[in-house]
Design a protein around this nucleic acid. Structure first.
Lengths: 198, 198
DNA sequence: TGTACATCAGTGAACGCGCGTTCACTGATGTAC
DNA sequence: TGTACATCAGTGAACGCGCGTTCACTGATGTAC
């Protein structure tokens, strides 16, 4: 391999890291394997990342971004206006469905997105985080008159917990359920959230 | 170290594994470290376990048992009768609180209890699993007339998901909240579950 | 436009580490007659 | 009650493995004058 365009190796490393994470979760993001995929000598990674953990953080960011995008796409697919009762309800449901679907179809990235960093990063970020999309959906519910304003504060965390917990359980203790049972459980749980909100 | 009482090493290995898991989660259950703690040569473990994974399974069982015990203790602390409305409600809440408290005070064991086994075990077990305690609490709610029988089926999974998800999030993305904020969130989420059930 | 020099981004080789696991062994414990 | 033997539960030494990371290096790219 001769020289590459400037900045190409760095992004190639992240991309390779994402592929490994997709296939095997955060632990599969092995520095040597990443460089192998890119076709570069192992220590070349240290030109771009302080250490393995920093590389993993970049991969995690990518995973989080993908999840957020799924949620955006899900919401955008809803035709009814965001502030109509139907629209607000459907958007809320779409956000939850997108989350669960991401966990089901991209388990490795899902795990990576939520893997605890060894040394918690500064935590700034340009893009809207997944949580913010959920918050927006809940605000819509309030504006549409479907959720009492008094109940709104902090309720995003309970909703998030429900959907996140189901995603985790479905790949943990409940992993041996059939696909059909899993889908049913997802629907019922989204309904449970609906009951908790109204 | 001379000879030990029969069966002593096996249980000592599990006990040591539990200590490591308590301190560092499932990945900390390192076979060589476990034998080190017991004061035995590494390969001695193979007299008692087929491989590291089998030892870890035994440790996981112990962690699950501890969680289940916390739930039992929580329920038993409720004075009101199990089939009275108050008693049913308090028991339900106690189960949830025990779960969240276990996750908060024993994060390593909590992670270990739910770590995905590499090759899923047969899955039999004598003791009542944590889930069964939740199911019992929900059955009480039905008997006390606080939960419509039509809504009962499978609702344990939604409740479990909520409580499990919060436990996970509190040690993941929400780990930097203060203890007070965490406790508040736990209370609010238990209330959210209550709203979803009634 | 040409030259001198600093910076950047890669190579090549090696390090120490701790891990899970295997092998051949030995001495103590329990059992059969 | 004593002896012969099988089984059990440990030791000691070694294996190959892949990992993250460091060092000294080299050639290409970009910059200043």
């Amino acid at each position: 391999m001769g020289p590459r365009p400037r900045g190409a190796v760095r992004s190639a490393l992240i991309e390779a890291g994402v592929e490994l994470a997709r296939a095997g979760g955060p632990d599969a993001v092995v520095l040597r394997e990443v460089t192998r995929l890119v076709g570069v000598v192992p220590n070349a990674a240290y030109r771009h990342f302080a250490d393995r953990e920093t590389l993993l953080a970049a991969v995690r960011d990518a995973a989080v971004r993908q999840l957020a995008q799924r949620m955006v796409d899900g919401m955008n697919a809803v035709r009814a206006g965001a502030h109509t009762p139907t629209g607000a309800r459907l958007r809320m449901r779409a956000v939850g469905k997108a989350y669960l679907e991401f966990a089901r179809t991209e388990p490795g990235l899902f795990d990576t997105a939520f893997a605890a960093p060894d040394h918690p990063s500064g935590g700034e970020s340009d893009e809207p985080q997944p949580l913010e999309h959920l918050q927006a959906a809940l605000d819509n519910l309030v504006q549409a008159g479907l959720l009492q304003p008094a109940r709104r504060p902090n309720i995003e965390y309970s909703v998030w917990a429900t959907v996140h917990g189901l995603a985790v359980l479905l790949r943990g203790p409940l992993r041996s359920l059939t696909e059909q049972e899993k889908t049913r459980l997802e629907d019922r749980t989204l309904a449970f959230i609906g009951a908790g909100l109204s």
